[in-house]
Amino acid sequence: MSELSLFLGCVAPNRYPGIEAATKKAFSKLDIELDELDGASCCPAPGVFKSFDKVTWLTLASRNLALSEELNDDILTICNGCYSTLKDANDELKSNSNLKETVNKNLTETGHNFKGCHDVRHIIEYLSQEVGAEKIREQVSDPLDIKVAVHYGCHLIQPLKESGSELVKDSVTFFDELVEATGASSVDYKDKMLCCGAGGGARTAILDATLKMTDKKLQNMKDADVDCIVNACPFCHLQFDSGQKDVNSKYHKQYEIPVLHYTQLLGLAMGFSPEELGVDMNVTGTDSLIEKIK
């Protein structure tokens, strides 16, 4: 019986569905069942909606959490923004009975009720803690001899920090370990923890300035001579992949760094084809990477 429901969010299923396909394939190979979360909405995105009206943000988040509770599941996110929203909302509603009452008053009008009896997991944090790099290594049939720039993303780290997780207490390596379990080398690069630039509603408000941050990060990755970027968030993925084309045209750069979500990297190492994982559907070309791992 499944204990996890897969929360898709917006960007993965609607812009980069390869991430959704890769998640399902990789989890099937790991023999971990995932329930579909029928009728789930936007998490809603923390940078914009939390800034507009916190009660609305909590209310929509509580509906998504309640849908998962109704399946008796913890909720699994594949996106840092969704993780930030759902984990923060879950923790806040669990610890503040007044807020919980306010939210449930509206939520019962739609036939749901937030109980606060389950947890929110991020796929990288889940794989690291519940599966482990060693077990993942056992499932790798096609080890990847490539150099990777790992991008954690701000909203993978921050919720873990706020909940006092051991994963972020000292040096942060849990994502690098999962990447290296695929055979790839996680290469160190300058200012590795810098934001991709997109978060907080900034991409919407001021695209040009966010691209300057992306440019800086891409340059640091390029200087480290990596074969690809591996992220844990479809929104960072979008900023690096689609944003890379924007950076090239605005700032006359020639970046050609393929961008993969971790589930796609894992899928490749498990023997799935790039086409099955949507690796060939990016804006920035991935041919150089596909050629290298043949």
Partner: peptide, 12 residues
């Protein structure tokens, strides 16, 4: 406004 909306909430 709009400067207050420039923050990427990276927490740095």
């Amino acid at each position: 406004v709009p400067f207050i909306f420039y923050c990427t909430t990276c927490y740095r």
